[in-house]
């Protein structure tokens, strides 16, 4: 699973590049691919700060990739929209294809942590 990690922090101790907004949004999209989730669950599973998750969800809702399916004082629940699911499938297909064809250079792989 894609998982956020703070800049400079890595399991091997080597320096990892700063997470881009695109990378964080991909993390969120792939976490929601499994099932609908609360912001708290997304933040716990991806290791991204709660507030950051909330802000990116707002952006993703604007792009119509994510829907807010429930809103209450206690919790907000988000799910991938049909458009978001299509985007995720297509993105994964492209990445797999690029990897197989060796078109993904080292820098791109490092950024995507794959």
């Amino acid at each position: 699973m894609l998982r956020g990690r703070k800049e400079g922090e890595s399991s091997s101790g080597s320096r990892v590049p700063k997470r881009t907004f695109d990378y964080l949004r991909l993390c969120i999209i792939y976490t929601l691919y499994e099932k609908e989730k609360t912001i708290n669950s997304i933040a716990t599973e991806t290791g991204i700060n709660w507030k950051t998750v909330e802000l990116h969800l707002t952006y993703l809702m604007g792009r119509k990739l994510v829907d807010e399916v429930h809103h209450s004082e206690y919790a907000r629940i988000f799910a991938l929209s049909a458009q978001g699911r299509e985007f995720a499938d297509k993105f994964m297909e492209n990445i797999t294809k690029a990897l197989a064809e060796g078109k993904l250079d080292a820098d791109a792989r490092r950024r995507l942590r794959i």
Partner: peptide
């Protein structure tokens, strides 16, 4: 970690019951 309603607000109460029953994520979180 619970949902709170005014006892007289039947609309809110029924809406919250349905939310917990329908949204697994909310049920698990609670």
């Amino acid at each position: 970690h619970c949902l709170k309603v005014d006892f007289w607000d039947i609309d809110q109460l029924s809406s919250k019951i349905l939310s917990v029953l329908n949204y697994k994520a909310l049920h698990e979180e609670l």
